[in-house]
């Protein structure tokens, strides 16, 4: 199956359709039901906040959508595709093209500069170095870091690191932006900067954003807030 044939997603079409998705982790003798019959639909252009106590399955759900993990039961269509039928290399390509992922702990590569970190996903594309440079600079400008291009992660503040991570997530112009507690490790000023960027990406660039957070202030940036508890999605 080719991953390139995704139709242009008009706003308000369903980009995510999850039906009765369950995920059970088995570790030694224990079984943990991380997701329990979760059904959710998210429309293109939405900004969704996922909230819930620690261990409620938020990251697990995000991982499902990013084709990082597979459910034990249920069905999940992302951009109209049943991503669980993908092979490893197909889902890698899928993530590269359609998913931008932002981690709580930034996860920048320490030996690479801001520019190089952002360029990393583009190395997997057919773009030449000039095209890559243009994309990277656009992304860095968008997060307001065009003057920090040659800094290494350790020379940046936490907020700046997270902005580089967001630039990396959007540099390949994905449809979906998934953020797992993106402000969890930041002070409130930096958090606001990051949230503003996410809002801009949603409003001006029509990215569908799904953000996991504990913080009601962060959740207030979203159009919709959904709650998970013990793996179950509470009614909206």
């Amino acid at each position: 199956m080719s991953t390139a044939t995704v139709p242009n997603i008009a706003t308000k079409t369903k980009v995510i359709q999850a039906r009765n998705v369950s995920k059970v982790f088995t570790r030694d003798a224990f079984q943990v039901k991380a997701l329990d019959n979760v059904s959710i639909e998210i429309a293109g252009g939405d900004f969704v906040a996922l909230m819930g106590p620690s261990g409620s399955g938020k990251t697990t759900l995000l991982n499902m959508i990013a084709a990082i993990d597979r459910p034990t039961a249920g069905e999940l269509l992302v951009l109209g595709q049943n991503i669980f039928t993908f092979s490893d290399s197909q889902s890698a390509k899928w993530r590269n093209e359609h998913i931008g992922y932002v981690f709580q702990t930034f996860n920048l590569i320490p030996v690479l500069t801001a520019f190089e970190n952002v360029e990393l996903p583009l190395l997997l594309t057919k773009l030449n170095s000039q095209q890559r440079r243009d994309h990277v600079m656009t992304a860095l400008k968008l997060v307001g870091l065009e003057d920090r291009v040659h800094h290494l992660p350790k020379q940046l503040s936490g907020g700046q690191e997270q902005r580089v991570a967001i630039a990396r997530a959007i540099v390949s112009d994905p449809t979906l932006l998934l953020a797992d507690e993106p402000t969890g490790d930041l002070d409130s000023n930096s958090a606001t900067e990051v949230l503003e960027i996410l809002r801009r990406l949603n409003q001006d660039f029509h990215k569908t954003v799904i953000m996991v957070t504990h913080d009601p202030h962060a959740a207030s940036y979203a159009h919709v807030t959904r709650h998970l508890e013990k793996g179950m999605l509470l009614p909206a």
Partner: peptide, 9 residues
């Protein structure tokens, strides 16, 4: 992280 960014095995 690399794999999340789309790097294959």
């Amino acid at each position: 992280v690399l794999k999340t960014l789309g790097f294959t095995r």
